[in-house]
């Protein structure tokens, strides 16, 4: 394919990723958060496909397929399932940052990562587009980190973690593709982690009375006998 066209498409996908990330930061509705996340992963796999088209390495194609299956289908289904059982719809609890200030913080994050990477730009030997991809990837990681620390609902924290993970994948696409075996194991690990945190988060986020009742017999594990 025409390398100029691929470069333009790469730029457009990076732009799309940034837009989707700002939507993730500013939305409170859980359903749209999950949908936007699956779109986010779709764009990521599109970038991987672009890499396959420009370099002809089948690892990229395989990684793209794995990403689509796991991140834009399986994990959103899992999240939706959890959300449906928890019966919560919006996230209005924040630790430190409200959406407006978190958007400004993410702006600072992007500038900060620009600053960090300018220190090692010469050693990496990347073209300026790839370099920009690296910066966006790293900023996604930091933005995900910010989401984890500023939101209180576990399910939103999980989405923050997933955004971080997408950032790491973006970074690895632009710097150098990992071997397929490792790629697969990382995805497996991610799936297990999300599953476990969903199941565990169930007990904490849930607004259902019965669940709290279920936990109650073991509630005061530590001081039960002392009280008696």
């Amino acid at each position: 394919m025409n390398p100029v066209l691929i470069d333009e498409l790469l730029k457009i996908s990076l732009v799309l990723l940034v837009i989707l990330t700002t939507i993730i930061i500013s939305r409170r509705n859980l359903v749209s958060l999950i949908n936007v996340y699956s779109l986010h992963s779709l764009v990521l796999s599109f970038i991987a496909i672009l890499f396959f088209l420009s370099e002809g390495n089948y690892t990229f194609l395989f990684a793209a397929a794995l990403t689509i299956i796991s991140k834009s289908v399986l994990i959103p289904i899992l999240l939706r399932w959890t959300k449906w059982h928890m019966k919560i719809f919006t996230d209005i609890e924040y630790h430190y940052l409200k959406p407006v200030s978190s958007i400004f913080v993410s702006l600072l994050i992007i500038i900060f990562s620009f600053f960090i990477f300018s220190k090692i730009k010469d050693y990496l030997g990347l073209s300026s587009l790839y370099y920009f991809g690296v910066i966006i990837g790293f900023s996604l990681v930091m933005i995900g980190f910010m989401i984890i620390f500023s939101r209180r609902k576990i399910i939103v924290k999980i989405i923050g973690y997933l955004v971080m993970e997408n950032g790491v994948v973006l970074l690895s696409l632009f710097i150098g593709e990992m071997p397929l075996l490792i790629e697969m194991m990382v995805l497996m690990d991610l799936l297990v982690l999300v599953a476990i945190t969903c199941i565990l988060g169930f007990g904490m986020d849930s607004s259902m009375e019965e669940f709290h009742k279920k936990l109650n017999p073991f509630h005061n594990w530590f001081n039960r006998r002392a009280k008696k």
């Binding site: 730029k11 959406p99 400004f104 702006l107 300026s128 370099y131 920009f132 910066i135």
Partner: peptide
């Protein structure tokens, strides 16, 4: 407005970089 600000600043950065 914050979203608009972020996006326009990122465009500026991208244009300066690429």
């Amino acid at each position: 407005f914050a979203i608009a600000f972020l996006l326009s600043l990122i465009t500026l950065m991208m244009e300066m970089l690429l």
